[in-house]
């Protein structure tokens, strides 16, 4: 991929061996699990680069081939696995989409949410065709990250990590309530909910300067789970968490792995010091593949240690 030093990889997504990398220069697609990449916007015949800050794939990608990409001013969608694209604008002035999340029950509810850098959260309830800002109670409109409950169809719960803390919605993003975070722990750059969130109420928050925080009561109280040196850009939990209590935390210069739900951490050597995005398409089991994006636009494939 590109060697352009400005071509940061913002987000990675994979499904069915098809991977997407959202980069400052646009969206890239791999159909071989990340070994080779192609420009996904080729059909748009763009004359300028189209910085793409987020990407999300439908949970039913195998059948609906639906992909969404967040750009400045709108959301692009593809219904053919990234071959062709349509854009839906979010309104004026243009909002920069910083993050996208999709309902695990997307096939039924068609719900998709876009966090933006200045205009809060936009919500679509019809598969991305129309969007509306839903910011009731959201007192900070700089959204860094959104996390959706695995049991969204039942609990309609979402979390938003913002410049000044965390907000929670329990009605599918239509209204937000502030969560009490210890003073000085904001901004929150990354969030990860336990796959068993409905039962264990566990979530993790990656902060800019105070490491990783853990809550086991749906965000009511927090304890510090790790204090690495640097912003925690991404957090991944094992798909079978808490049975396999593995957590991966991505910092720009380090990849940290905890095998005990955040009690202890160890650094996983990658040889990279400019990491910006991470994806574990097959989970966090020992020996599982990892895809890492860098601030230079590279996408590197690695394997988790076997022990």
């Amino acid at each position: 991929m590109s060697e352009n030093t400005q071509d940061i990889v913002y987000a990675l997504q994979c499904a069915q061996n098809v991977c997407f990398a959202a980069r400052a220069s646009g969206l890239y697609r791999s159909t071989d699990g990340g070994r080779s990449w192609e420009f996904a916007y080729a059909s748009l015949a763009l004359t300028d680069s189209l910085p793409t800050t987020s990407v999300v794939i439908s949970p039913d990608f195998a059948t609906d081939r639906t992909v969404f990409a967040g750009v400045s001013g709108g959301v692009l969608y593809s219904l053919d696995g990234g071959d062709s694209w349509q854009i839906v604008e979010l309104g004026m002035p243009p909002s920069t989409v910083s993050t996208l999340v999709i309902s695990p029950d997307f096939g039924r509810d068609g719900v998709l949410l876009a966090g933006t850098m200045e205009d809060g959260v936009f919500r679509s309830g019809n598969r991305g065709y129309n969007w509306a800002a839903w910011n009731f109670g959201l007192l900070d409109l700089s959204i860094f990250t959104l996390a959706i409950s695995p049991d969204f169809a039942a609990d309609e719960t979402l979390f938003a990590g913002v410049e000044s803390g965390i907000f929670r919605s329990t009605n599918g993003g239509r209204a937000w309530r502030e969560i009490t975070l210890p003073v000085g722990y904001e901004p929150v750059l990354s969030l990860a909910l336990s796959p068993a969130y409905a039962q264990d109420g566990t979530l993790f928050a990656g902060t800019e300067s105070q490491g990783v925080l853990r809550s086991t009561d749906r965000g009511a109280t927090w304890t510090q789970a790790a204090t690495p040196d640097g912003p925690v850009n991404s957090l991944l939990l094992a798909p079978d968490f808490p049975t396999r209590p593995y957590i991966l935390a991505l910092l720009e210069h380090a990849l940290l792995l905890s095998q005990d739900a955040g009690q202890t951490w160890r650094e996983y050597p990658t040889g990279l010091n400019d990491m910006s995005a991470v994806l574990a398409p097959a989970g966090l089991a020992p020996g599982a593949p990892l895809i890492i994006g860098t601030t230079r636009g590279d996408v590197v494939s690695l394997v988790l240690p076997t022990q």
Binding site: F136, G137, T170, N171, R174, A175, R177
Partner: peptide, 8 residues
Amino acid sequence: FDIIGAYG
């Protein structure tokens, strides 16, 4: 009230 809250 689920949307606007107690003070909305």
